[in-house]
């Protein structure tokens, strides 16, 4: 059993390194050109956003419609810091500060609002994100340049950073879910009353999930700022939160690998439909309705892609390694 766990760890690591190297080679040989790379950045940002929202909404069952608000905090914090300190350390510092700051706001917002349930929480988080947007646009405009937006943010994101933060975020979030604390979060989604009666402090776990989700959304925002070098408050409107939710719902609430798959799928669709942005949104809207009517659990349901596959792999590897050890 122990060996099995270790082996999956090693396999994951190998898979990650291989992915990294292959893409790096493709970039070096310019098969992945700037255009494809920018799509790749979008995909990675969406993966982090969806995985972190999934933690809040899919796993813990707290319906949030304000995820773009946390993303914007990470984006602006990182942008403002890297504009001042235009070095790699400035960027890393800005990214961490952005994530921490987003998490702090998540805590302040989560503590009072997470007492609300279902629709009410959704609306409260929506309101929160709108307020954050207005703050960036009209109150902090000395820092953020108001509605006109910030330009010329130094670009530090390359494939190595992108990969590190995306894989890291997904890994940390899945580690959280696969722990006793993660299970406590899931039990709140399943039945909050029963879970409290079994000793789970639901407020604490809801806030933990919310803050963790906000933290990673902050990272996604920082990556966005550092790659697309232009930020304006309106990008982080209600619609952005919805975009993230689409990914979570399509992939499956409660499935991280589902979020990853859906992020890739939707990015491909929208690249394909780039010339018709309205059509893209119409399709997203129709997708929502169709998924909810015909497959409310999304692509993956609450299952993870890795589970059965990795078991198969470890079965094969285990036998080979077993002989050697």
């Amino acid at each position: 059993m122990d060996k099995l766990i270790k082996n999956t760890g090693i396999n994951k690591l190998i898979a990650l390194i291989v992915t990294f190297v292959i893409v790096q080679v493709l970039i070096s040989t310019n098969i992945i050109n700037d255009y494809i790379f920018s799509t790749l950045v979008t995909i990675c940002i969406n993966i982090i956003l969806a995985a972190s929202l999934n933690l809040i909404t899919g796993f813990t069952g707290q319906f949030s419609l304000g995820h773009a608000g946390f993303m914007s905090i990470g984006a602006y914090t990182c942008a403002i810091i890297t504009l001042r300190y235009s070095t790699v350390w400035g960027f890393v510092g800005g990214l961490v500060a952005g994530a921490v700051f987003a998490a702090m706001v998540g805590f302040l917002v989560g503590l009072p609002t997470l007492r609300l349930k279902g629709d009410y929480l959704a609306i409260a988080t929506l309101g929160m994100a709108e307020i954050i947007k207005i703050l960036f646009r009209n109150v902090l405009d000395d820092l953020t340049n108001g509605a006109a937006g910030l330009r010329g943010i130094p670009q530090f994101i390359n494939w190595a950073w992108l990969f590190l933060f995306t894989a890291g975020s997904v890994l940390l979030i899945s580690n959280f879910i696969n722990s006793s604390h993660g299970r406590a979060c899931i039990s709140i989604r399943e039945d909050e009353i029963a879970s409290e009666a079994m000793g789970v402090n639901s407020t604490k776990y809801k806030v933990t999930a919310f803050v963790t989700g906000a933290f990673f959304a902050g990272i996604a925002g920082a990556i966005y700022a550092s790659y697309f070098y232009y930020l304006k408050p309106d990008y982080f409107a209600f619609k952005k939160s919805i975009d993230i939710l689409v990914i979570v719902v399509l992939g499956g609430m409660g499935s991280i690998s589902g979020s990853v798959i859906a992020a890739i799928l939707l990015a491909l669709i929208s690249t394909y439909l780039q010339a018709f942005p309205e059509l893209n949104m119409v399709i997203n809207g129709a997708l929502f309705v169709i998924i909810m009517i015909f497959r409310p659990q999304g692509i993956m349901g609450s299952k993870e892609l890795s589970l059965s596959l990795i078991k198969k792999w470890t079965g094969q590897f285990g036998r080979k390694n077993g002989g050697a050890a």
């Binding site: 722990s179 006793s180 299970r183 899931i186 399943e190 789970v200």
Partner: peptide, 29 residues
């Protein structure tokens, strides 16, 4: 009021959560 969509094992494990001592760092890493 079981956690219907979770496994039998998880239903029992969740009830043991209150005794867990490892913190957030251990959880993430």
């Amino acid at each position: 009021r079981l956690f219907k969509d979770l496994t039998v094992l998880d239903n029992v494990r969740i009830a043991m959560n209150k005794n867990v001592k490892y913190g957030l760092f251990s959880t993430f890493f």
